[in-house]
Amino acid sequence: MKIKQTNVVSANTATKKKPHKILAEMKRNWQLYVMIAIPFIYILIFKYYPMLGAQIAFKKYTPKGGIWGSQWVGLDHFIRFFKNPQCWTYIKNTLAISTYSLVLNIPFPIILALCLDYCRSKAFGKTVQMVVYLPHFLSTVIVISTMNMILDNRIGVVNNMMQILTGSKVNFLGNAEYFRSLYVWSGVWQGTGWGSILYIAALSGVDPQIHEAAIIDGANKFRRIWHIDLTSIRPTIVIMVIMKLGTIVTVGFDKTFLMQNSVNLRVSEVLSTYEYKTGLGGARPDYSYATAIGLMLSVVNFAMIVTSNKISNKLSGSGLW
């Protein structure tokens, strides 16, 4: 690590020095420049060019004028969006789902990781890990259809059980009021195991000597989790929270879209599905309007990340950067 540090310094000073040093570096490392060329061009075209393309949010896009030649209209599309009485429903739906899932998806992986870390039977722990990671690798379509199969009103195993236990069935799938819970809990089912890996890694890095000292001092496992483990993995938790906050207005398009039907549309129409429908889904696509919605989402997400990172840096001294 130390060697690396000094090299960074020398590389930095090299760039600040005279131009022939830069040329010397390029001559020495020409192969590195050749390698980075393809990914660099890829990023420029497929990540930065669309950022320039987002200017059509402020233009009236016409196929003839394209991105660059269409007429500027200022904030028209944004104003139109907020004048649409439905827009607040979409915003509310989006925030309801994302905060609901945020609240569950932060603590659950931590609890699972702690349980696994303190599991006394190694074989049982390994088995649990193997099973809980698995749903992460299933596709959204598969997860949704598995959920539909389990909860099905006629033959689903959950309803059959409820029939026996309570004598009545619940129509989970045909009822809009369950949509949010289905969306969020299926996400918990799919993501908790995978989400715990980072914490398991962080917990295995906790110094065992601290635990030994605590045991000698008479601390039980509850106290050790609270005072030692959770304190040690705090930086990891902070980073995960920041990253999750950075997606607060993004409720994934594919899952929402795949779960959407005429019954639940009232609660399932979120900003990303609305963006898709206005831009590509309808009979009269409105590219500029959809771009304006997408741009707002990007900007809010970015602002959330920057702010939460700043706050976390100030409060806890750690953050993403």
Partner: peptide, 23 residues
């Protein structure tokens, strides 16, 4: 450093669905 930052930035900010579609 410059290129790393440039790449990392795209994780937090992107042009959106429509500009990518048009591209």
């Amino acid at each position: 450093k410059f290129i790393s930052l440039m790449f990392a930035f795209t994780m937090w900010f992107h042009g959106g669905l429509m500009p990518t579609y048009l591209l």
